[in-house]
Simulated assay, not measured.
Amino acid sequence: MVEIIDVDAENVDKYGFFCMRSKPNSDGYQKKLNWVKERLKEGLKIKIIQENGRQKGFIEYIPGEFTWRAINAKEYMVIHCFWIVGKGQGRGFGSQLLNGCIDEAKQLGLSGVALVTSEQGWLPNKKFFERKGFKMVDKIDEFELMALSFNENSKPQFYDWNESAKEYKEGITVFKSDQCPYIQDAVRNIIEASKDLSISVQIVDMDSYDVAQKKSPTPFGVFTVIYNGEIITYHPETKNRFIKMINKKNLLTNS
């Protein structure tokens, strides 16, 4: 039997939010859990699709006014995360979840549904959404802003964030939020890497949707690593991978 679970304040402790279910006591899981409970008050929706009691995928979305992506999309519903796993792919589960999001956006009188995509990192891949009628409405570097518009007079757009990394010229600066439960491990990896390299590290905690929208160095709005004024990644990595990234950057700078 296939069913869609609407996660709310009453059942989130039971069903979780799909990610990291095997580590409910971890720091990342608990921070995300607290984040979810606060965001539910702002209209956050998490829908988990499951078959015979096994979770197969989920969608997380929120009205654009409160999105944790660095986009101006106040008249849109914004999808944060969208994931169908393994053998659940190709069976219409993603379409069911997306259609529910689209229907809700229409019911609320919004101008459409939007999301940030990228071929890198953990952002959704645009190909599925293109098949559903989404079109690219803005692009900066590898980030593309996709939208399904009900009102052609209203378009979401990226905030002008591209130069903000240059403000952080010394050492490592990490922008992070609790929207993704995997970020806490990545931050620890960076701190350990910085100690091995004897490089200072600064953590900037994006603790509100307004900060995530307007201060994030990338549209991801969840995690970005800056080294000496330059973005080196927005994807969580192992400690050794971070060390290799920084050493490579030093070689390129000094060559």
Rank of each mutant, 00 (worst) to 15 (best):
K249D: 05
Y209C: 08
Q30A: 08
D27C: 09
K169F: 07
A193G: 06
A105P: 08
G92K: 00
V7A: 00
F17H: 14
E75V: 02
W35P: 04
V78S: 09
G64S: 13
K23R: 14
M20V: 12
P63Y: 00
L145T: 07
W161E: 10
M146I: 03
I246V: 08
S26A: 12
F242E: 05
A73Y: 01
E167Y: 12
E65Q: 03
C81F: 11
G86P: 02
D138Y: 11
F17G: 13
A9M: 14
I84R: 05
K47F: 07
K37G: 10
R69L: 11
G16R: 01
Q30N: 13
N72T: 01
T233F: 02
A193V: 02
K56R: 14
G86V: 01
D160A: 12
I5N: 08
F143L: 04
V222W: 08
D8L: 03
L33K: 11
S255F: 11
E3D: 14
G121K: 05
E75F: 04
K195V: 03
N250G: 01
F82D: 04
T117F: 01
C81S: 07
G229L: 10
A73K: 00
K126E: 10
I71P: 11
K23Y: 15
N153V: 01
D196L: 13
G90K: 03
I79R: 03
I246W: 02
G57C: 02
N25S: 14
K135E: 13
K126Y: 08
H80F: 07
I62W: 07
L97T: 08
K47Q: 11
I5S: 07
L145A: 07
V137S: 05
K215E: 14
V36L: 14
T218L: 03
M1R: 06
T224P: 00
V204D: 08
K155L: 11
Q120W: 14
L197V: 07
E237I: 15
K214Y: 07
W35C: 09
F18S: 12
S255R: 10
D13N: 10
S208H: 12
